[in-house]
């Protein structure tokens, strides 16, 4: 039972990671679709807190996958989720590194490199849209999201700073009784 679950999770994470061009953020809609909508591994609320915690924690953003694995099957889930997200794409990176000079001269590679960025932008915006629908629940949430988006567009601050401001604002608003 658990073996099947782990195998399924490994397949989902590995196959999604292998097409996650433009970084891990582009995987989030698919992970939400699989974890909440298709497999029912967690509720929307748990997904939101998992997403929030993984964004606050230090480290690479594959941590969302790791934490989903932890929620689903404890230490084994954490290990399977992390490895299946990291290992297949790292093997691709290893191969690409060793073939870099040949790759750089290949015409299809140049074409693909030019063609993919608009798709990446679409994926990132889709990621924001999907997470907004589950994680932004009222006007204060909208204000916080837009505030952070503006801050990272207009300034070069470490993204953690607007994120901390968001948390402080949320706690204050919660104390005042109109958030949470």
């Amino acid at each position: 039972m658990t073996g099947n679950l782990l195998l399924k999770m490994a397949f989902i994470f590995a196959s999604t990671a292998l097409v996650s061009i433009g970084g891990i953020a582009t995987m989030i809609p698919e992970i939400h679709r699989q974890a909440v909508e298709i497999n029912g591994w967690m509720t929307n609320d748990v997904f939101v807190s998992t997403f929030a915690i993984s964004q606050i924690a230090p480290g690479p953003n594959i941590l969302l996958m790791s934490l989903v694995g932890w929620r689903v099957a404890g230490v084994a889930g954490l290990a399977v989720a992390t490895l299946s997200t990291v290992v297949p794409t790292s093997l691709v990176a290893l191969a690409a590194n060793r073939a870099e000079n040949r790759l750089a001269r290949a015409a299809w590679y140049a074409t693909l490199r030019k063609a993919l960025p608009p798709i990446v932008v679409g994926l990132i915006l889709a990621s924001a849209f999907v997470t907004a629908r589950v994680a932004v629940r009222d006007w204060l949430g909208v204000a916080i999201a837009l505030g952070v988006a503006l801050a990272i567009n207009l300034t070069k601050v470490n993204p953690l700073i607007p994120l901390i401001c968001a948390v402080v604002a949320g706690v204050i608003a919660g104390r005042l009784g109109f958030f949470g």
């Binding site: 953020a25 989030i28 939101v48 807190s49 997403f51 929030a52 915690i53 964004q55 606050i56 932008v121 990132i124 915006l125 990621s127 924001a128 997470t131 907004a132 994680a135 932004v136 629940r137 204060l140 949430g141 909208v142 916080i144 999201a145 837009l146 505030g147 952070v148 988006a149 503006l150 801050a151 990272i152 567009n153 993204p159 607007p162 994120l163 968001a166 948390v167 604002a169 949320g170 706690v171 608003a173 919660g174 104390r175 958030f179 949470g180």
Partner: peptide, 19 residues
Amino acid sequence: AATLAAGAGAVGLTFGTGA
């Protein structure tokens, strides 16, 4: 409240990057 705010903030982070 902190978790909800962090979630909304993280959405803003993704949206800001996309924009």
